[in-house]
Amino acid sequence: MYDGAKIITGLAVFGAMVTLPAWYGWAGGSHGDAPELAPPAHGEHCVESVEFMRSSHMQLLNQWRDQAIRRGSRSYRSSSGETYKISLTGTCLDCHQAKAEFCDRCHNYMGVQPTCWNCHVEPTGVKP
């Protein structure tokens, strides 16, 4: 209605500002180098396929969480028919022992901060 030009300019400046980090990253070309993740200490394969775990481990972990805590059933049958014990520190971290070089590295790269480790304890036994 009134001052349409001013409003649009304002919005454009605002839009540019909030997307600044993205532009910055793009200009610096930092989007290319994906982090290198530490390979698991042992074990042939994960509970599900690598692609599935890469894209959906959060959902799987949520499902594990609800199944173990809310339904009291602590074993998981994978799509290939194998049975695993539901345990973040006991099963996942048993293979992925290097949390800092595996979980954290990718989470940092993605800029996400899962809250798992506020409570669950890395099986080294030392205080964080």
Partner: peptide, 16 residues
């Protein structure tokens, strides 16, 4: 977390 004498890893702590 900071007030736990001996942290064991097979049971989670709680969060604030």
């Amino acid at each position: 977390r900071r007030a736990i004498d001996k942290l064991r890893s097979d049971y989670p702590t709680r969060t604030r």
